[in-house]
Design a protein around this nucleic acid. Structure first.
Lengths: 133, 133
DNA sequence: CTAAATACCTACTATGTCAATAGGAATTAG
DNA sequence: CTAATTCCTATTGACATAGTAGGTATTTAG
């Protein structure tokens, strides 16, 4: 289940895409438009900054803006940063310790197939697709 | 992320499908074959019994068996019972309180599309498909 | 130069879920 | 009667979620 972090983060990114145009957008405005606690968004936006997805500018007149064109983000990469992983099961997480049952597990192929499907789905959705819908 | 409950439960069901043939299968055997704590499996199997997926027989010579032909179970229904939902986001859970942003939410269509895809994927996999793979 | 607005930072917390474990009661076959 | 089994209730430690609190640093506008 995608948590609020991933969901809110996506909405922040969409909000930024819609309000592009020179001036940075203050988090206060985003929080009001999206009806999400600004304090909580701070945590989320920090991760987006760390990931290099958005650029923050301090001081009066400051705020956040996208670092790339909205067409060049995918929902997948945004969700992956905020959720930690898109893997549906623990054993397919990046860096998971290898499972002894791997070679004969009856369920692993299904999880792999689903993981692939999920990855494809979210990496084919651009931020632009979402913003203009 | 699918929890151990859903994953272990599926493996129990597959194990039962593979060991079909008259006599009920004791949980002890399943726990050993699957290398999962029997005590923990008790919790899981109880839910499978409540859902009507397996039938438990007490006493010596007792154990569990499937209530239907393995072809007539889907991975989807099994996971849904054990995980509570297959919905990828809280707002699409069965019985979720309606969201005010529903009519104009930019992300909802994507979540719906993904939920549908997930549902289709798991409801097209039968227990038989998994057991014989 | 000062005040206001903003990002940035560290810490804290309540609640709930996960992944079991513990100890036994009820049931049944041989 | 005994052994093997399901069935039942309760408890627990660790972790994640979804925030809140209170401040510091930075920058622009007047």
């Amino acid at each position: 289940m995608i948590s609020t972090k991933g969901r809110y983060g996506l909405r922040v990114m969409i909000d930024l895409a819609e309000n592009e145009g020179g001036k940075p957008v203050p988090l206060k405005d985003i929080a009001e438009r999206q009806a999400i606690s600004k304090k909580y968004l701070e945590i989320i936006v920090k991760e987006l900054v760390n990931a290099g997805f958005v650029i923050g500018t301090s001081g009066k007149g400051g705020g956040y803006k996208l670092s790339r064109d909205p067409r060049n983000y995918t929902a997948g990469e945004i969700l992956e940063v905020l959720e930690g992983t898109l893997a549906p099961v623990a054993c397919l997480r990046c860096g998971a310790e290898s499972c002894k049952r791997e070679s004969f597990c009856k369920t692993l192929p299904m999880w792999k197939e689903y993981a692939q499907m999920t990855h494809d789905f979210f990496y084919k959705k651009s931020l632009m697709d979402l913003a203009e819908s």
